[in-house]
């Protein structure tokens, strides 16, 4: 299965990645290779195996509803690429 140029650009857009022309070509091949590997996996007969989303046999892991201290505001904002007073500042979002 070969991924088209448009499909690669669409995936890049969803991930908010800007790609150069060379990268589009390279990723088109690499992503196609990955999908081909899954096609190999798909040959295994799984009709008797129930679907799962987990690889570890855990279920019902929950916490009680108790509040604890949050981090200080200064620490929360410390990594902000752009800060404005008590807020993170980001580019305008168009609805």
């Amino acid at each position: 299965m070969k991924l088209s140029r448009e499909e690669v650009l669409h995936i890049a857009q969803l991930a908010r990645l800007g790609l150069t022309e060379t990268e589009v070509d390279r990723l088109s091949e690499q992503l196609s290779d990955i999908l081909e590997n899954f096609e190999v996996l798909q040959q295994v007969d799984t009709s008797d195996v129930p679907p799962t989303a987990q690889s570890i046999p855990l279920q019902n892991v929950t916490k009680g509803d108790e509040a604890a201290a949050s981090l200080p505001q200064s620490q929360i904002l410390a990594n902000a690429p752009r800060r404005d007073g008590e807020f993170f500042r980001v580019k305008a979002v168009l609805e």
Binding site: K63, E66, A67, A68, S70, L71, Q73, I76, E86, F87
Partner: peptide, 28 residues
Amino acid sequence: LTKSKMFCRCSADYASAPPNTHVCPVCL
């Protein structure tokens, strides 16, 4: 109307809290 947030222990009662004070690494 829980005391804490959905997936961490930050307080869910944020109505009168100063901005970005009920935040932890999970929220971020």
